[in-house]
């Protein structure tokens, strides 16, 4: 956990309302960050928007870290106006990360909306290691997709409105992969409804995996106690001080399949 002033090297729109920001943060980049971890970005140096924005790391190359964000609120719209050469305060790396499952299982990466960045990074790592895997990406419309579908590389797209890829949610695609593939292991990140559906599907087929969650948070490092998610098992005492809840920022954002209760 380091606080560092980063230099913006690129900030561009890559799909409808989706932006990729690249920042030079040598200390954080060399802090052995892993897919799943996140950073806290200070967008507004005035105090009008006092809190930092938590953002998943979408990749690290040399001393450069990238994030992919959706312009949905005041802070993300303001972030989209930042130019190369400007500096920005970052705290990171924060939270835990995906752990790559043991030999033999085939990873299936399931991303919904802005849940894609950490899985895109994991996808790059798996590709580099020549590990056969699937990547399923869901979005509301085709304009929000910036990764190209490629059945040879096992990359599948879905849209809610049917404008690109398969019409509907990611779940039927995941089920068709389950039907034709043995010994799969799921990595998922996306909206809560998608995570709940992925978890139900995994239960149904007795498949293991890891889910990355998000939550409103004020700090990102355990002192606000704001970012709680409900546990299903009530077994493990967490940074939330009790068994019922876990903190997304420190006990997560990645949890094992079956650990969390959605809804």
């Amino acid at each position: 956990m380091i606080t560092e002033t980063g230099l913006i090297t690129s900030n561009r729109c890559i799909a409808r309302n989706l932006w990729r920001l690249e920042i030079e943060v040598p200390e954080i980049a060399y802090a052995q960050s892993q897919p799943g971890q996140f950073i806290e970005i200070l967008v507004d140096v005035t105090w009008e928007r006092p809190l930092r924005c938590p953002m998943s790391i979408a990749g690290i190359q040399d001393n450069r870290l990238s994030i992919i964000y959706k312009t949905i609120g005041i802070s993300t719209h303001s972030l989209a106006t930042k130019q190369s050469g400007e500096t920005i305060s970052i705290i990171g790396p924060l939270g835990n990360s995906f752990s790559i499952a043991g030999a033999g299982s085939i990873p299936v990466l399931v991303a919904g909306g802005v849940g894609l960045p950490p899985l895109l990074w994991l996808h790059q790592i798996l590709t580099k290691q020549n590990i056969t895997h699937y990547l399923v990406i869901g979005a509301q419309t085709g304009e929000e997709h910036f990764v190209k579908t490629d059945q040879h590389k096992n990359i599948y797209l879905t849209t809610d409105d049917g404008s690109l890829g398969r019409h509907g949610t990611v779940i039927p695609v995941v089920e068709s992969i389950i039907d034709k593939t043995n010994n799969i292991y799921i990595y998922a990140c996306g909206p809560e409804a998608m995570l709940a559906a992925v978890q139900d599907t995994a239960f149904e087929h007795n498949i293991g995996g890891q889910l990355s969650t998000e939550s409103y948070m004020a700090c990102g490092f355990g002192i606000c106690q704001g970012c709680v998610v409900k546990r299903r098992d009530f077994k493990q005492a967490d940074h939330s001080y009790n068994l019922r809840y876990a903190l997304v920022c420190q006990d997560g954002p990645v949890f094992n399949m079956g650990e969390l209760y959605f809804g």
């Binding site: 009008e48 928007r49 006092p50 004020a218 106690q225 704001g226 970012c227 939330s240 001080y241 019922r244």
Partner: peptide, 22 residues
């Protein structure tokens, strides 16, 4: 254990919390 989520929201120049003394 504190209150159920959501517990935090940012507002103009501030924030609202309802942690519930966890």
């Amino acid at each position: 254990e504190g209150n159920p989520p959501p517990r935090i929201v940012e507002t103009t120049g501030g924030m609202i919390n309802s942690i519930g003394l966890a």
